Simulated assay, not measured.
Amino acid sequence: MFLAWNEIKKNKLRFALIVGVLMLVSYLVFFLSGLATGLASLNREAVDKWDATAIVLTEESDKSLPQSSLTTEEADNIKDNDTATLGQLNSIARNGDAKQNIALFGIDSEEFIMPKVTEGEKFAGDNEVIASDTLKEDGFKLGDELELSSTDEKLTIVGFTDSARFNAAPVLYGDVTTFQKVKFGEGAAENETQINGIVVRGDDFSSISTSNEDLEVIEVEEFIENLPGYTEQALTLNFMIYFLFGISSVIVAIFLYVLTVQKISMFGVMKAQGISNGYLSRSVIAQTFLLAFIGVVVGFALTLISGEFLPSAVPVAFDIPTMIIYGVILIVVAILGAVFSVLTIVKIDPLKAIGG
Results as ranks from 00 to 15, higher is better:
M1G: 09
L3Y: 12
N6D: 14
I8K: 02
K12E: 07
L13K: 15
A16R: 02
A16F: 15
V25W: 07
Y27D: 13
S33T: 14
T37A: 11
L39E: 07
N43A: 13
E45S: 13
A46Y: 01
K49D: 00
T53N: 03
E59I: 10
K63C: 03
P66K: 08
L70A: 13
N95C: 09
Q100Y: 05
Q100T: 14
F105V: 08
K116P: 00
G120F: 06
G120I: 05
F123R: 02
G125I: 15
N127P: 01
V129Y: 03
I130V: 15
T134W: 08
L135S: 11
K136T: 02
D138Y: 12
G139F: 08
T156R: 15
F166K: 11
V176H: 07
T177K: 13
T178F: 15
K183C: 04
G185F: 06
T193S: 13
G197T: 10
G202D: 12
F205G: 10
I208A: 10
I208N: 09
E213G: 11
F223P: 00
E225G: 02
N238R: 08
I241H: 00
I241A: 00
F245H: 02
V250W: 12
I251M: 10
I251F: 12
A253S: 14
F255W: 04
F255T: 00
L256P: 02
V258T: 09
V269Y: 04
K271W: 02
A272E: 05
G278P: 14
S281K: 06
F289G: 03
L290D: 04
V298W: 05
S306W: 05
S312Y: 03
P315Y: 07
A317K: 10
P321H: 11
T322V: 12
V332S: 01
G337Q: 05
V342L: 13
I345F: 14
K347M: 05
G356P: 00
